[in-house]
Simulated scan of single mutants.
Amino acid sequence: MDFTQLTNYFVLVVMVACLVVGYILKTSFDFVPNKYIPTILAVVGAVLNAIVSGVSVNSIVYGALMGLASTGLHQAFTRFVEGEKEGA
């Protein structure tokens, strides 16, 4: 698989926007369960990437993937900064 083709669809602005939306959801809105945040970010990423890159199946799918990747990026950064918790 050629990963260089992924750079054609990667939009940093969408990734950062999803990261910010996810952080706000996690810290400010207690009524949103954590298990729904990845799904919300996938939808937000799909919509934002469709707006930025034009409406197509590819841009919607890659936008959803960027929304999910922002969830993983947040978790990786949190684990790196806070360290691995004992017993986890």
Rank of each mutant, 00 (worst) to 15 (best):
L12M: 09
L12E: 06
V13D: 13
V13G: 14
V13K: 14
V13E: 15
V14S: 01
V16I: 03
V16R: 00
V16H: 00
A17E: 09
A17L: 14
C18M: 04
L19K: 02
V20S: 06
V21R: 00
V21D: 00
G22L: 14
G22A: 12
Y23A: 15
Y23G: 15
I24W: 09
L25Q: 11
L25K: 08
L25C: 12
K26S: 11
K26W: 03
T27D: 09
T27M: 10
T27L: 08
S28D: 02
F29H: 05
D30R: 15
F31R: 14
V32N: 12
V32H: 14
V32W: 13
P33W: 12
N34Y: 06
N34R: 07
Y36M: 01
Y36G: 00
Y36R: 03
I37Y: 11
I37K: 05
P38N: 04
P38S: 08
P38K: 12
T39M: 12
T39G: 09
I40H: 09
I40T: 00
I40P: 04
L41G: 07
A42Y: 00
A42W: 02
V43H: 05
V43K: 01
V44R: 02
G45A: 08
G45P: 11
G45K: 03
A46C: 08
A46L: 08
V47R: 04
V47G: 10
V47P: 15
L48G: 10
